Computed example of a mutant assay.
Amino acid sequence: MCTYATVTESVDGSAKGPGGQWFHVSDATVYYDHPVHAMAEHTLNIDLADPSRGPGQRVAVELTRESATRLRDAIDAALASAPEGV
């Protein structure tokens, strides 16, 4: 079953892409659907990209639901441990 539930968000950061080169990322697309590569029925798929530099400027991640939940919890914990304003 496809959910077609897609969330897009503007972001400001960097990612390491093909060839080990860093590039700016400005767009995040997150959706839960069939993966392209991961060996799972459905995954949380995250694309970080800079569309102004063409389709090759992106990093894609496919995570199982369990892995995505653990990653979300780890992000929350890391952000909570940082002092306000840092």
Rank of each mutant, 00 (worst) to 15 (best):
M1L: 14
T3K: 11
T3F: 12
T3L: 13
T6S: 07
T6R: 15
T6G: 00
T6A: 06
V7T: 11
T8L: 02
T8W: 01
S10H: 11
S10F: 13
A15L: 09
G17R: 08
P18W: 12
G19T: 06
G20Q: 02
G20V: 07
G20R: 10
Q21S: 13
Q21M: 13
F23A: 07
H24D: 15
V25T: 14
S26V: 00
D27P: 05
D27S: 08
T29V: 14
T29N: 10
T29S: 08
Y32M: 00
D33V: 01
D33A: 07
H34W: 06
H34S: 09
H34M: 12
H37T: 15
H37F: 15
A38E: 10
A38H: 12
M39W: 03
M39C: 11
H42G: 00
T43K: 00
T43W: 00
L44E: 00
L44W: 12
N45K: 04
D50H: 15
D50V: 00
P51F: 04
P51C: 03
P51D: 01
R53M: 14
R53H: 13
G54R: 11
G54K: 11
G56W: 10
Q57G: 02
V59S: 01
V59Y: 06
V61M: 14
E62H: 05
T64I: 03
R65F: 02
R65E: 08
E66A: 06
A68D: 07
T69K: 12
D73Q: 10
A77C: 01
A77L: 10
A78P: 02
A78K: 03
A78M: 09
A80M: 01
S81Y: 05
E84M: 06
E84W: 08
V86W: 10
V86T: 10
V86N: 05
V86D: 04
